[in-house]
Nucleic acid binder design. Structure first.
Lengths: 193, 193
DNA sequence: ACCTGAACACCGTTCAAGT
DNA sequence: ACCTGAACACCGTTCAAGT
């Protein structure tokens, strides 16, 4: 006799993400996920291979959300530097809203739990695209990497409490990106845009 | 009848660090540490409060090693920009030699396992010190934060595999720091040094 | 076809009992 | 004093048995 499904892979993934964001990675147990979707832990294995696959799926979902968040506004007529600043601002807002999710993307995880590295690398593509208008195509990738590394480092250290030494962290963030952009301009011959 | 000690807090800490560096944080179990020092797991509780305290001690020890690694060479007569580049280079070398240890410093850990945030923040002090010669005292802290955030972000993404898209990563690192320093120079009025 | 309790391996931790 | 086996709570995972 067929027994009706009481949950689904999507519901399990959503529950896992909610638990992660609320209580962190250590709280993301199979039993907690099962309780949240209303089954017992063994039933989860009908939908997901194991906990590692579930953690990976969560990381991949966060990656995709972040990618969408950073998509450039191609209808904007703001100058390229301002568009980079806008992307950087959306990035920091995302990370502050999803601190546990973002931390998962760079957590020291065994390979079977780590999110797809290619997809994660592709998240920075909008920055390369906009940067090409500041540096030309040749220098765009390197300049984008510098901006992305700085932004990632800044928010990671902010989350870790490394910037408590004073002042307005948001203002420091905007000052930082202006410094980076100034360095990029000083070292590149801008093209038309 | 007193029983002789078969291990010590120092030996336990060293064993924990070795296991972390060899096999990562998930391999750092009380049983693995106990086996390495030649006792059973319950005996560890005579020397360390619990696993959380041991993980924190490992992180604090890594922090202290990193702090020593980044100390500026105060006898050097290299110009300030070259000294910043030298510190950045020692930083990347340290992280590549101790990837699991460095990852631990920014891992999403419960508060009782996280390394001391104040000590971690103090690791960047040499950068502030040298930067003051480029920017003056007022701008040194902000400029140092920008360099530190960028360097941290760069190596973190390098470890996560985010820079596979090609080329010489070491050269990209040096190019990045030159860009940052150019931006700092462009936005600051240098003092004498 | 899916769900469940029971079972197993593993880990952190406590504690009474050994020396 | 320190060490140990046994025990407990917890977690991931498998599987035979239910519907």
């Amino acid at each position: 006799m067929p027994a009706p499904s009481r949950t689904s892979a999507d519901e399990i993934l959503a529950a896992a993400r909610a638990i992660l964001e609320e209580d962190g990675i250590d709280a993301l147990t199979m039993q907690a996920v099962a309780a949240r979707v209303g089954v017992r832990a063994p039933s989860l294995y009908k939908r997901v291979a194991d906990r590692a696959a579930l953690v990976k799926a969560v990381g991949d979902a966060v990656t995709e959300d972040l990618r969408r968040t950073l998509e450039p506004d191609r209808t904007s007529d703001a100058d390229a530097a301002d568009q980079v600043r806008a992307i950087a601002h959306r990035f920091r807002t995302f990370v502050r809203r999803h601190p546990h999710g973002y931390a998962l993307l760079f957590a020291p995880l065994p390979p079977d739990q780590a999110p797809d590295a290619g997809a994660l690398a592709a998240v920075g593509r909008p920055v390369v695209e906009v940067m090409a208008r500041l540096t030309g195509e040749e220098g765009a990738l390197e300049a984008a990497r510098t901006v992305v590394a700085w932004a990632h480092g800044f928010v990671t250290m902010e989350l870790a409490g490394g910037f408590r030494l004073g002042g307005d962290v948001g203002a420091a963030y905007d000052a930082g990106i202006k410094t980076i952009l100034a360095g990029i301009s000083a070292r590149a011959i801008p093209s038309s845009g």
